[in-house]
């Protein structure tokens, strides 16, 4: 189990970095920002922030999907933050203060997940564009959420064990993993998700920052935009 965890994490980190490195290295030879666009850097930061935190373009595109997507992501954020308690000893106060909301988020997240799934299934245009991996990703996350809720609500696992195990992993002094099946399933699904992450559309988490239509300034006439190959 320890080995699997390390492999997954290493693949995630290396994979993520490789992909981002490629994106950084490939030049954007032309100004292709979608206008109206900000002219200054602070403006670009504002625009990017509105996309990253508020999903502005998605909001304009599809309100219901926006709602589903936004609730999903914000829940996910709180869930991840809540889980940080398993990696710290002692647990910082701010993480402790997020426990309740994190737990709620753990339940709430099922709603948008089911909505997203039903949407792919039932809405004609969405079912047309969905491929096997789109469903797989959703099922994977639903599985993670579901086993998490089971552990929290019905079949309690020994959290002291879990915490010792996680801290062991983190400090590179691996211990024996807890024997609890439910925990193992939950943990393995998460490992699979992060292993799969760099090879999948989940990379949208990084890609959004590299999108030239969003991160460029609209100043083509004022400042000459050149990249190594475009100045031939």
């Amino acid at each position: 189990m320890n080995i699997i965890a390390y492999i997954a994490v290493v693949i995630f980190i290396v994979g993520f970095i490789c992909k981002v490195r490629v994106w950084t290295k490939v030049p954007a030879p032309l100004k292709i920002v979608t206008t109206p666009a900000p002219i200054t850097y602070p403006g670009v930061i504002l625009r990017m922030a509105s996309e990253v935190f508020l999903f502005r373009s998605l909001f304009r595109g599809n309100k219901l999907l926006w709602l589903g997507g936004w609730i999903f992501h914000i829940s996910l954020l709180f869930i991840v933050l809540r889980h940080l308690r398993y990696f710290f000893y002692p647990v910082p106060a701010w993480i402790m203060s997020l426990q309740t909301i994190g737990i709620y988020a753990g339940y709430i997240i099922l709603l948008p997940l089911i909505y997203l799934l039903l949407r792919r299934w039932t809405v004609e245009i969405n079912s047309y564009i969905s491929n096997a991996m789109d469903y797989f990703t959703l099922f994977l996350i639903i599985g993670i959420a579901f086993t998490g809720i089971l552990m929290k609500q019905y079949i309690r696992v020994d959290l002291v064990d879990v915490k010792a195990f996680m801290l062991g992993l983190l400090t590179l002094h691996p211990t024996i993993s807890p024997g609890d099946i439910l925990f193992l399933v939950h943990f393995l699904l998460v490992l699979f998700l992060i292993l799969y992450f760099p090879f999948s559309k989940l990379m949208h988490a990084g890609g959004i920052f590299f999108s030239p239509t969003r991160n460029q300034r609209d100043n083509a006439r004022e400042i000459r935009h050149i990249t190594p190959w475009s100045n031939i």
Binding site: K19, V22, W23, S57, G69, S130, H204, G207, F210, S211
Partner: peptide
């Protein structure tokens, strides 16, 4: 490159 890697097939477009 980024656009090929990033689409999540959300269908907004």
């Amino acid at each position: 490159k980024v656009y090929l890697d990033t689409c999540v097939r959300c269908g907004s477009c």
